[in-house]
Design a protein around this nucleic acid. Structure first.
Length: 551
RNA sequence: GCGCCUGUAGCUCAGAUGGAUAGAGCAGGAGCCUUCUAAGCUCUUGGUCAGGGGUUCGAUUCCCUUCAGGCGCACCA
């Protein structure tokens, strides 16, 4: 909101008159308690100490001068131990409505990111099985972060990293191959680690149907064939699930392509140039310990193959080479121990620590009939994202995933998410939007029309505490988005929306919008609500949740 | 053993870089539908911010420590 900006100039000159410097820290901010006005400042406390002044007197002086400087937009008064509270005029708040109307879908967007190029990587699940609900949380967070950062002025690309070069994928091939042979009536011995799960059998059956002679292939070729077919099949399924979940990736990036190309060599060269690599015990090492890790890590094993870490370094090196300024990875929280070594790699590449961030996604506990449902891909007892979305819908599940700090565990109670009442916050928020739309429709039926962009005269009747409370909340929107972006915390958005929706419902119960004999008031309130609906829409858009016109 | 995260109302959780009397929702109690969607609203009960130290004008927030949970410590991915 431009509220702070409006007063900054005036405040600066007042401080100059008093012979005081503008403090480095933010001086005015919205107070926690609305009783303290619209903006509150502890400037007196911040300044009184170094300037050796009495905080109460200083607050008083600043308040008086501020009133005198901008009587058109604000009233200020000294309060408490050195606080200076500012209250804006009604007209100031009314001006927000045309602002929202003019900016429409872009209301709340800011330019703080100044076009910085961001690459967000999320999901990146091994294509060895369908996405489960834990992946869903990462997907929702990653996708919404992309939307959030775009609104905050960043240029955002998104990627899914496919681990198609490692052991897990070989295992997938073996699992399908053996299933196929089994289905063909051949006797097979199962290795210790293999993928159970019905989808493996389905894929094997499908392959046999297409090629009955499959099992006559030699083991090597059969495994390879199965691996490739299964991976593509599963990846297609993953893509379809994400599409249903409204999650997008601009690119799918293959680990294999790093190994096949020169990306790994280039990354190794970069690390070597900085003097962080060495040979020991027949392996090739990266001295991460010098860079804050617990111990040094192997890049190329004794048997000549690359570690996961090695290709991952190459991947991140490649991301930077492609011109991205800020890499954000969304990982499962169980990988948090991996962060120090990745940070070490970033540093060894000569990149800023601030150019790499990891958003950790904690466990999702799926609860059904009051009991937790286990989920292990290997054991095949998972609850898939597909099943969950089919049961409760994309909107409800996305909102649920995004309503808590991603770094803390989440109980996903199917019975709650399915509910269509206020216990399920997504309905509460969507209902606010639908309600406004219903009122607007009703008004239109009665022939009440609003211009696309309203003006001060039309909005002048907005003067009840409820009117102004809604405007104040709507004014916070852009600031909230910017802060959420900076903190990489999407849950601020869902919380904000719940609050805003609550205020709207309260408003609706208290204030009749369409007043039969007073079209002046009616038009003002309709304009207000139309603007609020726009804010709700924009907020839901960040979450990737729809804003229905009626429910 | 080392490292990371968590601990806020009976339950699920917010509290953004220290600020005024710690907030929501659910659950419990009492009310509101012959005007715009009751999928809603209003009021109310409920707290030693895990315990203890420290830093300062001031701490739920920062530092140390104890306790209780979760996770991670591979030439796996």
């Amino acid at each position: 909101m431009h509220a702070v900006d409006c007063l900054t100039g005036a405040l600066q000159s007042i401080l100059a008159e008093e012979g005081l410097a503008w403090p480095e820290k933010t001086v005015i901010e919205p107070p926690r308690d609305p009783r303290h006005g619209d903006l509150s400042s502890n400037v007196a406390m911040l300044l009184a100490k170094p300037a050796k002044k009495n905080p109460r007197e200083l607050a008083q002086t600043i308040a008086e001068k501020l009133c005198a400087a901008r009587p058109d937009i604000a009233h200020a008064e000294a309060a408490g131990p050195g606080f200076c509270n500012v209250t804006f005029t009604e007209a100031f708040w009314h001006a927000l409505v045309p602002e929202i109307e003019a900016q429409g879908d872009r209301y709340g967007d800011t330019t703080g990111g100044s076009g910085k190029k961001v690459l967000l990587e999320y999901v990146s699940a091994n294509p060895t099985g369908p996405l489960h609900i834990g992946h869903g949380r990462g997907a929702a967070v990653g996708d919404s972060l992309a939307r959030l950062l775009r609104r905050a002025g960043y240029t955002v690309d998104t990627e899914y990293y496919i681990n198609d070069a490692g052991r897990q994928m070989r295992l997938l091939g073996v699992s399908v191959w053996l299933r196929a042979k089994e289905l063909h009536g051949m006797k097979v011995t199962w290795p210790e680690d293999y993928y159970h799960g019905d989808y493996i059998i389905d894929i094997a059956r499908e392959m046999l149907a297409k090629d009955p002679a499959l099992c006559e292939l030699p083991d090597d070729e059969g495994r390879e064939r199965c691996y490739e077919y299964a991976m593509n099949e599963i990846l297609d399924g993953i893509k379809a699930d994400m599409k249903d979940f409204r999650v997008e990736h601009k690119r799918f990036f293959s680990e294999k392509s790093l190994v096949d190309g020169h990306a790994v060599d280039a990354a190794f060269a970069a690390l070597g140039k900085a003097g962080y690599t060495y040979d020991k015990d027949g392996a090739f090492w990266f001295a991460t310990q010098q860079l804050g890790d617990d111990k040094d890590r192997v890049l190329r094993k004794q048997d000549g193959s690359l570690t996961y870490f090695a290709t991952d370094i190459a991947y991140h090196h490649d991301k930077f080479e492609r011109g991205y300024d800020w890499l954000i990875d969304v990982w499962g929280a169980d990988h948090h121990g991996y962060i120090p070594r990745m940070r070490a790699a970033i540093q060894a590449m000569g990149r800023e620590q601030a150019s790499f961030d990891v958003v950790l996604i904690q466990l999702v506990n799926l609860i059904k009939d009051g009991k937790p449902v286990g989920m292990s891909t290997r054991a095949g007892t998972f609850e898939t994202l597909h099943d969950v979305v089919a049961e409760v819908g994309t909107d409800a599940s996305r909102f649920m995933f995004l309503s808590r700090k991603s770094d803390s565990p989440l109980d996903f109670d199917l019975d709650v998410v399915k509910q269509r009442n206020l216990e399920n916050p997504v309905y509460y928020v969507q209902y606010a939007h639908a309600r406004i739309c219903a009122v607007l429709r009703r008004a239109a039926e009665r022939g009440i029309r609003l211009p696309d962009v309203t003006d001060a005269a039309l909005l002048a009747p907005l003067s009840t505490p409820e009117d102004l409370a809604l405007l104040r909340k709507a004014a916070e929107f852009g600031n909230m988005l910017a802060q959420a972006a900076q903190a990489l915390a999407v849950h601020h958005v869902s919380r904000y929306l719940s609050d805003l929706a609550g205020m709207l419902h309260s408003y609706y119960a208290k204030q009749q919008v369409i007043v039969a004999d007073d079209e002046v008031v009616t038009r003002a309130r309709l304009a207000l609500l139309r603007a609020i609906a726009q804010v709700v829409r924009n907020g839901l858009d960040v979450l990737g949740v729809t804003a229905p016109d009626q429910m």
